[in-house]
Write a protein that binds this DNA or RNA. Structure first.
Lengths: 351, 351
DNA sequence: ATGGTTGTGCAAAACGTTTTGGATGCCTAG
DNA sequence: CTAGGCATCCAAAACGTTTTGCACAACCAT
């Protein structure tokens, strides 16, 4: 078994990495013994073991994890599927997921989908081909729901942050979106607001729906709803459109996430309105920029890190035992952060 | 070969996934033929092929990527090692890396280290055990430099954003830190500033050093340097300490990254100083919060996405050919974003 | 008839581990 | 002397693919 030359840049230099057979041959033992020495799975004569270890060091032998995984039937890697890692909410969630995975010696494959269904499908394929032992699924694109459905129950999947509508029997970790909406509703109501504009996310995403429901119920007053897509641009567009058409007859805006709230802020500022003097604005998520914005944004703090960590830890609890997790729900508490963007309602000006 | 029962939650239900042998047996052909049908690697009689494909569908057969990788000698997965995914700079970088990897059909393992050397070592182990085909290394902890050194040249590694000091022969993609520092220096000088405080990062990180060098050279005036650690808290502490001791006799502060600039802003505000009226502040990175802060932060925009994307694309160019990349450097342009936190120098007040 | 080509499919090796059922020799208790 | 126990180690199977050399038949041109 002559070592094969590898190529570096253009020139040949590195050799085939040592295998367990090479170690066995050099130490004058069988591969079995080498394996036992390294794993401690069975006792080996200390003198022999020392010899093996010395050869291992000399050859720089590192077991090929691929072969190990093949034999073991699992890879100790899971996937994290999210729409956009540059969104700080998902970045925090990813951090929690990574921490939980690391704690149990698992690797985490980042599946950033940009809401692209094809991309999502390709990543879901990793679980079918058993390259990953499980998947933490954080609100992917609505169209690929059916694919997901086919997988759940057959493969270890946990839903984080977002419970996909119509999907049951799943392990779910999510923030208490409904309570968050309620907190904002109560807050604005207490400030004397009676007419509000609600910027929601896509109908298919239940988290946004829950936020809206909680808000409407607690607010009590009149609420105009406009459907956005959770992006800053849509918050801007929706508010700007209403302003153009003179249809913004309210004293408060509640955006279903901070990004849209920022868009709304920009549109309002451009229209010469002052926040919070003329109109109050509240968001949801408490991303880092929220407290640094001008004015600082009143928003609902979501435990993004905990959501990611909980979903992952729960999932792994079953994955490590080779089981598919049963249905269960973990609702994490949220917190209202009152900042400068909300104030008592002023007289309503028709415009 | 009786299918083994798997466990779901507590109850038994899912069966062992179909293998290529199962398909072969059910279709009355050899595994070889099934492989050829699926890969198109060799021609197969269309009638036979159709039969095989039908069995594949009926059994829901999906090739085990582990076995495939073992045979192929590569996994089509690379690692991305960064200190903190919740830092928007690295999140953007990660997005670029993920995009580049996805384009070539590669998966990306997120290695979030929190600057923890042990954690970093564990992740570097993935490359030794050949579970990943390469690694994009974005400024890990200085202490593990030596480990890295041992790996470079033997394994495909690309340095992103940060060129680790003393490490050569590497593939490097980085923003033009020196030029960024220069831009800030010129800007502040043009505004009439002559005495500045420079908040640097750890000495071991060359990017920070380059920023400082560029700044000092272009600024020309008197510069006091204080060493921080790129965290918001250190920016706060360094400035607060100077204020306490009455030693902040300058009209401008240049922080080597935005986070420290924010810390500085907070300290200055708490001391009753107005930015930019009393003192100007500039940062580096242009993270999202920079433009939303109050006042909006003058800073150097770093092409984080491009850095991640370039490093990854370059690395993969060699990885796909089974080669270790040669030394090369890709310097990406930066841009000065002048915002509200810098203004013409006012008379220096000793305090 | 002969030799060559083409089409089709299979057997076996290889990738690098871990696991399991012995085999071997030695010691000790009966 | 023998049966059992213990300490060591190994051979072989298994994990699930892809690759390669070959066999076999049918066809064509000479």
């Amino acid at each position: 078994m002559p070592p094969e030359p590898y190529t570096v840049g253009r020139q040949v230099s590195v050799r085939r990495p040592a295998s367990i057979k090479d170690v066995a041959a050099a130490a004058g033992v069988s591969p079995t013994t080498v394996s036992h020495v390294l794993s401690g799975n069975r006792p080996v004569n200390e003198h022999t073991a020392a010899r093996v270890r010395s050869v291992v060091n000399r050859l720089g032998y590192v077991p090929a994890s691929l072969a190990r995984s093949l034999q073991a039937g699992s890879t100790s890697v899971i996937g994290l599927l999210i729409p956009d890692i540059s969104n700080t909410f998902f970045a925090e969630l990813a951090k929690g997921a990574e921490d939980a995975a690391h704690d149990l010696g698992y690797g985490l494959i980042l599946c950033n989908t940009e809401f692209d269904a094809d991309r999502e499908d390709r990543y879901l394929g990793m679980i079918r081909s058993r390259f990953i032992d499980g998947m933490v699924y954080a609100s992917g694109s609505p169209p690929s729901r059916r694919r997901l459905e086919a997988l759940m129950g057959k493969f270890p999947i946990a839903l984080a942050d977002e419970e996909v509508e119509g999907l049951q029997g799943a392990l779910i970790a999510t923030a208490d979106h409904e309570a968050g909406g309620r907190l904002v509703g109560e807050h604005l109501r207490a400030l004397g607001h009676r007419r509000a504009l609600m910027l929601t996310g896509p109908r298919a995403l239940k988290s946004g729906v829950a936020r809206a429901q909680g808000f409407v119920r607690a607010f009590g007053g009149e609420v105009v709803e406009r459907v956005g897509d959770f992006k800053e641009s849509s918050g801007y567009r929706l508010v700007a459109d209403l302003l153009d058409r003179g249809g913004l007859d309210c004293t408060a805006v509640f955006a279903a996430n901070d990004l849209m709230a920022f868009g709304a802020l920009t549109a309002l500022r451009e229209a010469g309105l002052s926040v919070p003097d003329d109109i109050s604005v509240a968001g949801f998520d408490d991303i880092r920029a929220a407290s640094l914005a001008h004015p600082p944004l009143t928003t609902v703090h979501q435990p993004a890190y905990d959501v990611g960590r909980t979903a992952t830890a729960q999932l792994l609890q079953y994955v490590t035992r080779g089981e598919v997790p049963p249905a269960s729900r973990h609702t994490l508490p949220v917190e209202l952060k009152v900042r400068g963007s909300t104030a008592p309602a002023t007289a309503l000006r028709h415009r």
